[in-house]
Design a protein around this nucleic acid. Sequence first.
RNA 1: GCGCCCGUAGCUCAACUGGAUAGAGUGUUGGCCUCCGAAGCCAAAGGUUGUGGGUUCGACUCCCGCCGGGCGCACCA
Length: 588
Amino acid sequence: MSNIFHAYKLKVDDILGTMAANGDLPKDLDMSRVKVEPPKEAAHGDMATNAAMVLSKAAGKNPRQLGEALAEKMKKMPEIKEVSVAGPGFVNFRLADSEWGGAIRNILIEGIHYGDSKMGRGEKVNIEYVSANPTGPMHAGHVRGAVIGDTLANLLQKAGYDVTKEYYFNDAGNQIEVLTQTAYLRYREALGENIGAIPEGLYPGEYMKDVVNALVARDGKKWLGVPESVWAKPVREFAVDYIMKMIRDDLDIIGIHHEVFSNERVMIEDGTLEKSFNTLMEKGLIYQGTLPPPKGKEMEDWQPVELTLFRSSNFGDSSDRPLKKRDGTWAYIMPDIAYHYNKIQRGFKWMINVLGKDHQGYEEKIRPAIAALAGDKKDVRLNVVYCAMVKLFKNGEPVKLSKRSGNLITLRELVEEVGAGVVRFFMMTRTPDSELDFDFTKVVEQSKDNPVFYVQYAHARCCSVFRKAKEMFPGLDTSPGALAKANIARINTPEELQLVRFMANWPRAIEAAAAEHEPHRVAFYLYDLASEFHAFYHKGNDNVSLRFLQENDKELSLARLALVEAVRTVIASGLAVMGVTPVEEMHG
RNA sequence: GCGCCCGUAGCUCAACUGGAUAGAGUGUUGGCCUCCGAAGCCAAAGGUUGUGGGUUCGACUCCCGCCGGGCGCACCA
């Protein structure tokens, strides 16, 4: 929970408060923009505050003057070594070395929980991701959203939110009807009938054979020669259950485990869907009407149709939305609306959906309904994270993803070829909304343009130092608890302190990434930390006195092992958020 | 036509959400293994942040206008 920047922000706030009390500053200043951050250039100091610049206007003083006044007060603090005013009015300061020693000790004590934050104050948040319908195994196209969703969930958890990981699937729509038809056809095939090619529009995948083989094993020929009204339900239920099991198993191999599975059918059966529709109706938000033709799109088959519409334009939508199709069945959006209503009823005020970019516009359509259904709960909010496509490459050739073409790459194949850690990390190396090239061959080569190995290597190196330490000092207690008691004051070279300063940023990185819903920042942070560590490590090549282990100075070695353990801990902490298992040795 | 996203080094991307001299990888060039692991490190070179205005102490970041690209815009999810 420790965050040294928070600690110093409070100290600066205190001083400003005192200045206001003394009449040096006006009372009731808006201090919300005051920050304590690391300066961009390490040469400027350990920390900097923008207080003087932000407050100067309201205080009626020029920023430099105000900065000087603030600096004078800060100079009197024993934990601050040096203060200066620079540039337009930044107040830069350096901490006493002992403060950084405390920072290392905190990392060792908190272990993998270092970086945890109270930012979320235990607020409940529902994060829905994957949510593929049960029509087939997970394929590569699902992976990005799955990994981003899972990492975001971990991240929010670390930032102090009460996170529920949720999967929603549609088991009552068209796709499921197609699945049922496909399953029955394959069922007849499995029992010896010649069915020819799978007709256009049904699912051609070979996995359907596994589904029906299991069905045959359970029910034999029970469903042959009976009317569809008899076989449809059991075949459908069997197929859905079987494929959902496949999907869960697929997700398991990249370490994704949802806590809650929701589905459309339950909402139909328990009346949630009906109830949310009626609620909208009671509010006078439903009417029969005809929408104008969509603009800018060639629609030769367009014809005006009277549909059941929801007045979403009352809530900022660009158009009203149909809730029923012309045949009277629900449009896809209605069960989704009901599902969000269901989440609100379960006590969630904050909902996040992770979707593919091809679902763009979803938020605009759902949010009005949420606003209408939330009633007086004004603080209900929905965020959608849209994930751009992943382009797969193999030997430099793009790999096409299409259900028809048959050369579809499954998640399982992907993971078996490159490993779960590589998949998870690599998916995090771009902002969610930018396209990502994933080249099998490059990733398998394990070359140095592979960030995963760079970070893993840093972790392995840390472990390697400990192995070496055991040889050099047999019986040495290198547990974090023991290292926390080392004489950490021995860590005082600029190179060492730079590393410590970087690690002091980990809690800030977590908070920033969580606040912006940008889990990729964790990957970038880890890459940078690994880079700092590798650079420091190599300084020991040129300068023997900088090596971690000094045979004739056990005290110094222990202090530096504390530093190494801190690095290892922060990397492990970050990899945990990303769902990647740290390695202790590199091989291959 | 409307909406959302994007435009940063030759290429792929960052930039702590308004901070100081815009940074990494890759590619190019040149160094470093008698060494705690060279899957690594160091250095050089590479930029009018698409463009024109505006807001302010301060803009890659916010606002407006252009230019260029991606995606989405009834009764698919």
